[in-house]
Design a protein around this nucleic acid. Structure first.
Length: 683
DNA sequence: AAAAAAG
């Protein structure tokens, strides 16, 4: 009932999407906003032909004015990098200007961008059908060369009858789908960063695992004995004795969610506590550990996946299952709730994605292609980039059996996402904010979601994420299957487990500890004032470098500084608009730049091939953050180095953090020009 | 502090 929107209750909450105060003000030149109040902005998105044929939001003059004013007024403001007012001065309401912040740098190469920005053409289609959102346009504008705009106007008239859609893809039925996958053309390129190339690589480093000593000592664990709790050593205490044998975990457990592995809320009335900002060390969950040798000779087919899926997995570069996959797939197929821990890149996406698709298909999925069918699976990720990356893996698997996925995340026009929902999708992959937004607008109904996946589940339980995640999970079908995955899965997920999971099976992969890592960890003790120069020296090399900073402003500043120093660098953080975020990440992936300075938005899950150096310009506060950041390198069987820069006062904290992360790192004092720095640069 | 919805 896309039309009923303006009357239903969603307006109460969804009102945030259409705030009269904005409509009445309407930005100057926003012709359509006057009457926008009479219609729900969103539903016009579907039926542009019904109401206001009025489409032009920006006439030529306005555009011209805008494009002129930009360089002159906004640019200069932030223009000089060194003087750039920091974020501190900015408030949320100034967000729109944010991009201006970015404007300065890439400006020069901007033109080039236009060419390869196919997505651009889609933008208008959003607008023309949805006049209200038009008001957002300006914000897009800053990233885009207004110049290409005019073209839109030209073909826009024709759009009234919806062709915009059609012009992009045959509206037949499904093909339209291709629309929301502009990325498709780039697909090949995805391959290399996702499963494809790293897959084989992992195989390479797997053999090594078998001879891994650290394992050896635990070796006997034939899977029967209680799982190797390689993970627990970190736990303050482990009362193993009364613990039931791992094997039974679940099978004989009352299915009332009474897990012995989580603090019981009812026991003392206290809620489990969470990490929050502190580096609280939570006990790791006990799990059944699977080792590489356990899965030798096992095929995806053996695990219960159908032919099409198996074939697609092979095409994706996954001919045979990795341990985490072999461990979790059968349980997922059996319908159990699953907690899975496997280091990033160890194949978690396929571990939940493939069986999820198989399950949906079994449940009549493929034949039920009716329009507007409700989604039956949901995959939640903490960042948009990660959601995108997951979709790149899951989508082809789903398509191989005739199921459809769509991405639902913020920062991009919602139109295409909503229209995909209208056509009907089976699997939703996205981030919390937009998902809630669409639910509030009455455009997304999760009531038929029978399988929900939380990737980076522990992170999703952090302050700020937990509540939205809980609200979303409550929207899904009661009793639906829940799958929680993370490289650092710990008891921080207890509250979710308590409320939403039943008798979960917990799996981990043995041997994925730091001792087995191919990463070299270094700590450089420096004077704070030398930080910039030392980073410049470290980055002066061939390979790809990922630099983490604590704040967005510093990420931006550092990227600017490096560029000024002649290094091709770019940034990735939440102050950038989504198009730029996507593009900047792509720039590192494609090798157009060798240095990316990012906030922790890039800490988890993001896979870029061949990053051989990770620099932590600011040390992380949490050991898990360290592990995730470090995990961006040392992938694909290659070696990687993590360099953390700290002032000497931070040594002690760093020691503790490394201790918790179970990492051995060497400390070196360094000043600019030191041999120690040069040596690192020559990795 | 960052992330996640817009505005």
């Amino acid at each position: 009932m896309p039309q009923g929107n303006s009357h239903n209750s969603s307006v109460g909450r969804g009102g945030k999407n259409f705030d009269p105060k904005y409509a009445s003000k309407g930005g100057p030149g926003h012709g359509g906003s006057n009457n926008a109040g009479s219609k729900s902005p969103g539903h016009r998105g579907y039926r542009a032909d019904e109401g206001a044929p009025k489409k032009q939001r920006w006439n030529a003059d306005e555009r011209a004015a805008r494009s002129n004013e930009r360089p002159s007024s906004e640019r200069p403001a932030y223009g000089s990098r060194s003087v750039r007012p920091e974020n501190g001065g900015r408030t949320n309401s100034e967000r729109n200007e944010r991009p201006a912040y970015n404007n300065d740098r890439p400006r020069t190469d901007r033109p080039a961008y236009n060419n390869d920005r196919p997505a651009r053409t889609e933008r208008p289609s959003y607008g023309d059908r949805n006049s209200a959102p038009r008001t957002e346009r300006p914000s897009y504008g800053d990233r885009a060369p207004r110049t290409d705009r005019p073209a839109y106007n030209n073909d826009r008239p024709a759009r009234t009858e919806r062709p915009s859609y059609g012009d992009r893809a045959p509206r037949t039925d499904r093909p339209a789908y291709n629309n929301d996958r502009p990325a498709r053309t780039e697909r090949p390129s995805y391959g290399d960063r996702a499963p494809r190339t790293d897959r084989p690589a992992y195989n390479n480093d797997r053999p090594a695992r078998t001879e891994r000593p650290s394992y050896g000592d635990r070796a006997p664990r034939s899977f029967d004995d209680r799982a190797p709790r390689s993970f627990d050593d970190r736990a303050p205490r482990r009362s193993n004795d009364d613990r039931p044998p791992r094997r039974d975990f679940g099978s004989d457990r009352p299915s009332d969610g009474d897990s012995k592995f989580y603090p019981k809320r009812s026991e003392n009335g206290a809620k489990p506590t969470f990490a929050g900002g502190d580096d609280v060390v939570l006990e790791r969950l006990e799990a059944i550990a699977t080792t590489a040798s356990d899965v030798v000779g096992v095929t995806f087919g053996d695990l219960g996946l159908g032919e099409n899926i198996v074939r697609e997995l092979a095409a994706l570069g996954a001919p045979s299952p990795f341990p985490i996959q072999a461990a979790t797939i059968p349980d997922v197929l059996a319908g159990r709730d699953v907690l899975g821990r496997g280091k990033t890149g160890s194949g978690k996406t396929i571990a939940f994605g493939a069986p999820l698709v198989e399950k949906l298909m079994e449940n009549n999925g493929a034949k039920d292609r009716k329009m507007a069918r409700k989604p039956r699976a949901l995959i939640l990720a903490p960042t948009r980039e990660l959601a995108l990356q997951i979709d790149r893996t899951v989508q082809p698997i789903a398509r191989s059996v005739g199921l459809f996925t769509t991405q639902i995340y913020g920062g991009v026009p919602q139109y295409r996402q909503v229209s995909a929902l209208q056509r009907g999708v089976d699997i939703i992959i996205g981030t919390a904010g937009r998902i809630e937004d669409l639910i509030d607008q009455g455009r997304l109904d999760l009531s038929e979601v029978v399988v929900t996946v939380l990737d980076e589940a522990d992170y999703m339980c952090d302050l700020g994420f937990l509540e939205p995640v809980q609200r979303i999970l409550r929207q899904t079908k009661a009793g639906g299957q829940k799958l929680l995955f993370s490289a650092t899965l710990d008891k921080g997920v207890a509250s979710l487990v308590k409320e939403f999971l039943t008798n979960p099976a917990v799996h981990e992969v043995a041997g994925e500890d730091q001792a087995s890592s191919t990463i070299d960890h270094r700590v450089l003790v420096i004077e704070h004032r030398d930080k910039g120069r030392i980073i410049e020296e470290l980055v002066n090399r061939e390979g790809k470098t990922l630099i983490f900073s604590r704040t967005r402003a510093y990420a931006e500043q550092l990227a600017d500084q490096l560029e000024d120093a002649g290094v091709k660098a770019t940034s990735l953080h939440g102050d950038l608009n989504q198009a730029r975020r996507t593009r900047n990440l792509q720039m590192l992936t494609s090798g157009r730049v060798n240095v990316l300075v990012a906030t922790d938005v890039a800490a988890r899950g993001i896979h870029v091939d061949d990053i051989d150096l990770v620099i932590q310009a600011d040390a992380p506060d949490e050991y898990k953050t360290y592990l995730h950041r470090a995990g961006r390198t040392g992938r694909a069987g290659k070696t990687g180095t993590v360099v953390t820069l700290i002032p000497k006062q931070r040594k002690r904290r760093m020691d503790e953090l490394l201790d918790r992360a179970e990492i051995d790192a060497s400390y070196t004092s360094a000043t600019p020009g030191d041999a120690a720095v040069r040596e690192l640069a020559n990795i």
